[in-house]
Simulated assay, not measured.
Amino acid sequence: MSSPVTGNQANAPSQPANRPVKRLARLTAAALLSLSTAALATPDTINILTGGTSGVYYPIGNELAQLYNQRIAGSTSVVHATKASVENLNLLQIARGQLAFALGDAVADAWQGKQEAGFRAPRDRLRAIAAIYPNYIQLVATRQSGITTLDGLKGKRISVGAPRSGTELNAREILQAAGLSYEDMGKVVFKPYAESLELIKRGQLDAILQSAGLGMAAIRELTEAMPITFVPIPAEVVEKIGNSAYQPRLIPGGTYAGQSRNVPTAAIANILVSQIKVPDDVAYQMTKAIFDNLDNLAEAHPAANAIKLRTALEGLPIPLHPGAERFYKEVGMLR
């Protein structure tokens, strides 16, 4: 993982300078979600940590909440929009959630406690529920910008996602593998999906990089609003990252309006993550409800079509929750 960036940045993440600031950061992190006192005090509440409302985590999280409310007796599920992977994993560590969406590389970084990725210490209370659909790195530029390659980003204005989000960590890795850095850009903006979308539509950005499931709402809306170019990320760049979590993939032609050709890019598995304070029976029921209702999840977002029981255990960088393990043994995937 590359080191924290400097240079031509807007709204860049700041670094704690002293102990009082560090303490404030910890207190702020613990309060990042608007969880009510009642919700935190109720052991039967399943708080589901997702991402931005215009991404893919959020609609699938809402469908999961409905399923859990119907199928897990005595529980209430609540969905929370967050800054996604890094924030979600930090919140799970302090038991401010019971289930969260996160990118596989961020989960590995959390388990190892990589500070440059946003984890002050190993997040050892995390436990896996399932590997789900892959995220695709989707780099789009306005047609007017003339950007058609990664090298064409030099001197341009780009949004790389919310600070320390899974998307932003992916952006660092992609650019570094391509021999680029944030300093090579004309301007780097750290904004989530919805805000990035508005900036590029107003002509204040040349490109946005998003890590999400195929067919994400923000990019779909952008392709319908203005002429854009999907910038390829060649397989050789993906291989230079040197992390098996990143795999060369194609965005199939026709995924978005005006995108007739396949676009080479990188894909990273998403993982549903829980934590050790979640009771085994609850984790078992959460896992079972996912795979008993895949059609419902696919109706919430097309990306969920890629969730398969046969791949649920692939590439998990952290231990399974005992409740999830019970489910996989029950269906014959584990002995």
Rank of each mutant, 00 (worst) to 15 (best):
Q9D: 05
G152C: 07
A312Y: 05
K187H: 07
A298T: 14
V86K: 00
L316D: 03
K156D: 06
Q138V: 12
A178R: 04
E116S: 13
A304L: 08
E221F: 05
N270D: 11
T6I: 08
P279I: 05
A212E: 15
I318K: 01
A283M: 00
A178P: 02
F101I: 04
I132V: 15
P319L: 04
L175H: 03
V263Y: 00
A102C: 13
A12P: 14
P319T: 07
L92C: 14
R23T: 14
T255Q: 11
I94T: 15
T6G: 09
A110V: 10
A17G: 08
Q285L: 15
E224C: 01
N88E: 12
F101G: 02
A269M: 10
I208G: 10
S54W: 07
I60E: 02
F230W: 10
G215R: 07
G52M: 06
A29R: 14
R261D: 15
G323K: 01
R125S: 11
S2L: 08
E168P: 05
L24G: 13
P16F: 09
L169M: 11
Y68H: 12
G253W: 03
R220S: 12
A130G: 03
G55M: 05
K187F: 12
P16I: 13
N170Y: 03
K277M: 12
Q204P: 10
G213Q: 03
V21G: 09
Y182L: 05
P59S: 11
K187N: 14
I241M: 04
K191V: 09
K114H: 11
R127Y: 00
A300I: 11
E314H: 12
N47I: 14
P279H: 06
L153C: 11
Y68K: 11
F101D: 06
P163S: 11
A257F: 12
A39Y: 02
P59I: 02
V5K: 04
G104Y: 00
P122K: 14
P232Y: 06
L33F: 07
E224G: 07
P264T: 08
I158W: 07
I268N: 04
S181C: 05
R127I: 00
A289W: 01
S14C: 06
Y328K: 07
T53D: 10
L294N: 08
Y57H: 15
N135A: 09
I132D: 02
S159L: 13
A245F: 15
I94W: 11
L294F: 04
G104S: 13
Y68C: 08
L150W: 09
L89G: 09
G152L: 10
S211R: 02
A162D: 13
E63I: 03
